[in-house]
Write a protein that binds this DNA or RNA. Structure first.
Lengths: 245, 245
DNA sequence: CGCACCCTTGATCCTGCTCAAAGAAAGTGG
DNA sequence: CCACTTTCTTTGAGCAGGATCAAGGGTGCG
């Protein structure tokens, strides 16, 4: 966790969120992803430190004092909640440009772990909140992000409460493809940044059902599974039918 | 939908959110529930209109243009999402003081209906957003509300994805009791503001399973069900055990 | 090469769903 | 005020989707 250098934003403000292209410059990344103004970026650069995580490494646990807000630079982060007996529900996967640690009064309301190798920017919450006072536009953007999260959470509730296994898997694939497209990646071949156990805990299934259902979609020619971590969408319209019953 | 009179906030700012006590004064209600400052309340009162809904009456559908933000004054509102074949997931119940219609870019991301008779304040979104420019503190409070919603949504995902029927019902009862307590109602006898079908669609169950599971809790002496719409918590600690596996 | 981990596949079980019907409440109109 | 209808809730019987238990196959790494 080193203090960041003061980085100047580059001219372009509309690039993709592919921070992998810019591993040494989280602030430029923020400039891209949160569309911050120059003054805001300068301020942010002064309070940010960096965190690097290996796969499965924990960022924080549910209930930890919510001292930091994070922004994902590269990799995939999983958020989850646990029951006392170990059952787990993954509530979301975060990708470059996403924030975490916003919603927390008293303690983080979920645990966070790296699904893959990951890098993050870390902002001490009190100092970030002080910045909000000066730059209300910043908070506004975080508000928008939180609202998008809420809409996604509502979609996920519909999925968890009312969809069958095949509808869950189909929805999941389509979601991944859409997110990949937003990050300027192919929307037809998506790489799974998580293992079967993570997928199961995200969709409210077991790993066996996930595996069986994926195999079934493959046999029906809807997708191809060239490797366990890759999905090719062969018949998107069919997948869309399946996703919504 | 009549324009509201300009109401002055009363002295106390920490009363309960029991707007039923103040049916003719939504703005005072807002003063209580959102802890707005005087200037803000005056502004709000000028742009607010009122909506009254009968049980099962619809406020808006998913996808409708998100022209208004609402604040619940009295009654219970249910938010839901539908699948094409009619399966429904209720994503939340809103009570006096709660906001709805915040998270919406392009269209409301859920439908909203009255579960009981209900009254709401209605704010035209563009005018509300103009007020946010002048009174950033207002937006901040809505931000906090949205964040609480998000935390609740994550709890609900854990419930929907990983809890058994009896755990779901136990969690539901405890949640209702907690919310009732916050509104200065008894935390031991909770009145169900919704029918079995709503409960089932909220918990990702069928009405039959809801009914059977409630009966089972009654036979085990954990709760009493004096009427279909009332639950008395007899053994709270047992309920808490059941709620978390 | 051998071990560990992840994924797949098979057999069986069980929780919660479906289908069916009756009982309880709550409107509705005479 | 009461008979009738409608809607909501409860209860029962049987079924099935997905879980559990168990074993085997791949793949990567030391």
């Amino acid at each position: 966790m080193n203090t960041l250098p003061d980085a100047r934003p580059t001219s372009s403000r509309r690039g993709s969120c592919s921070a992998a292209d810019c591993p040494s410059c989280e602030v430029r990344h923020l400039t891209f992803c949160a569309a911050l103004a120059d003054g805001e970026v300068d301020r942010l650069s002064k309070i940010a430190t960096r965190a690097r995580l290996a796969p499965e490494e924990m960022l924080f646990q549910e209930g930890d004092p919510p001292d930091y807000v994070f922004n994902v630079i590269s990799g995939t982060i999983k958020l989850y909640k646990l029951l006392p007996d170990g059952r787990r529900q993954i509530t979301g996967f975060l990708h470059p440009g996403d924030f975490l640690g916003l919603a927390s009064s008293g303690g983080y309301s979920y645990g966070a772990e790296a699904a893959t190798e990951a890098e993050l920017c870390r902002f001490p919450r009190p100092r970030l909140e002080a910045l909000f006072e000066r730059y209300p536009g910043m908070e506004k953007r975080l508000f928008k992000f939180a609202n998008d999260e809420l809409a996604a959470a509502q979609d996920q509730m519909l999925l968890l409460g009312r969809k069958t296994a095949i509808e869950k898997i189909a929805s999941f694939f389509l979601n991944l493809a859409e997110k990949a497209k937003k990050r300027n990646l192919s929307g037809d071949t998506v790489s799974l940044q998580m293992n079967r156990s993570d997928i199961a805990d995200y969709l409210g299934l077991t790993i066996e059902t996930v595996s069986r259902t994926m195999t079934r979609l493959k046999h029906e020619g809807v997708v191809d599974l060239p490797s366990p971590r890759e999905v090719r969408l062969l018949r998107r319209e069919r997948l869309e039918e399946l996703a919504e019953g």
